[in-house]
Design a protein around this nucleic acid. Structure first.
Lengths: 205, 205
DNA sequence: AAATTGAGCGTACATCTGTGCGCCAATTTA
DNA sequence: TAAATTGGCGCACAGATGTACGCTCAATTT
């Protein structure tokens, strides 16, 4: 059991993380947040921030980690739905868009810091996305008898397209998001179909 | 003819733009530059900055415009080379990587501000990239008899993959860039081949 | 030759930032 | 019950930032 003291600490720590997430938006990136702003939003004194995080970077990396968690939950959800049958691509895109919509700021930090100015951040995001890619590559390799290299290239392309669409979808209204999602499905099918063709071509010689 | 006075003005204006470009790096984005830093690097007083730009945003948009110019020059160069024959995809990727290598900071601002926090910036970059996409879509529509919708989706996918690879290539050594470029070529072929298949499928019913 | 213009500078100011220091009060430990 | 720990606070400071204002002086116009 957690002492009343540790509970309170955990509570304000969450308040800090939540405050940071809540300040994110289309026009506000994590790196543009100041320690004081976050502390203000969390209703603590600026100096109290240090009781929880060494600096803003540490807070940010914590947030990226939570993003990774969301990503993995999303994968699980997608896999469950796919088991019920239907177009894997379509189901995956739908799942992605749903999760994106209910956790916009989690994706904001992932998508933005992926190409941000902090090497540790980029590495952390890359690591999370790498999960995605390798899992996908493994799946394709197994179910479609794809060669490892081709499976890898295919998975990368798919993930690139999905995340890119995600970044674009973040600031769209529902209607436009639907159009985007439909186009994304087509693009993913292109990659899948094309990979299949390339695979056959390689086998026939 | 330009008076000696206008010449001098143009000269320090360029100094400002160049100073800003030169400060960009993997760990330094445009939005993290301060007016004073840029002025310092350009060897002018901070307040003199205003003789040339209303604020940092205006400077940034100027830089994005120059980026658009670079992009269009790249397209021309690629088209010329492609006329000589050979794999269009491979030639395009090679051209892209060359231009990327010799103008890293031009691409930095394009690639970063594409998903940045300033709506005007995002719009400006999107406009430049849209050139790319529509030109490519038109080309595919004409030479491969692709339907407009499919051509558009295909072009978008291609451009997404290319620019994404470009962002990743920016901070790589030459060797890794080569590997990346080869994989990119494969991915682009997937899209091209897949689009072809989808097109045929649509026609056969 | 005289008057006007304008690029560039220095000073100044209000505002914001991160963070060191010492205190308090409540919880935890001894 | 006494002592130690620690989350949270206020104060204070140095440094950086954007920008308003007014000056200078060379180029340009009249």
């Amino acid at each position: 059991m957690m002492g009343i003291r540790a509970q309170q600490k955990e509570k304000t720590r969450r308040a800090l993380v939540d405050a940071a997430f809540n300040q994110l938006s289309a026009e506000r990136s994590f790196s543009s947040l100041s320690l004081r702003e976050v502390a203000r939003e969390a209703n603590i004194a600026p100096t109290s921030f240090y009781r929880h995080f060494k600096d803003m970077n540490e807070l940010g990396l914590t947030m990226v980690d939570e993003g990774g968690l969301t990503l993995r939950q999303m994968m699980r959800k997608g896999r469950q739905r796919a088991e019920a049958g239907g177009s894997v691509i379509r189901i995956s895109v739908e799942t992605f868009m749903e999760v994106l919509e209910s956790n916009p700021n989690v994706f904001r930090i992932l998508l933005h810091e992926r190409s941000g100015t902090s090497a540790p951040f980029r590495a952390a995001v890359a690591r999370e996305i790498e999960h995605f890619i390798s899992e996908l590559a493994h799946y394709t390799e197994a179910t479609a008898r794809r060669s490892p290299e081709l499976a890898r290239a295919q998975a990368e392309a798919l993930v690139t397209l999905v995340f890119n669409a995600g970044a674009a979808a973040l600031d769209m209204k529902r209607v436009d998001r639907k159009i985007l999602a439909d186009r994304l499905v087509i693009q993913l099918r292109m990659v899948a179909k094309g990979a299949e063709c390339l695979q056959q071509k390689m086998e026939n010689r």
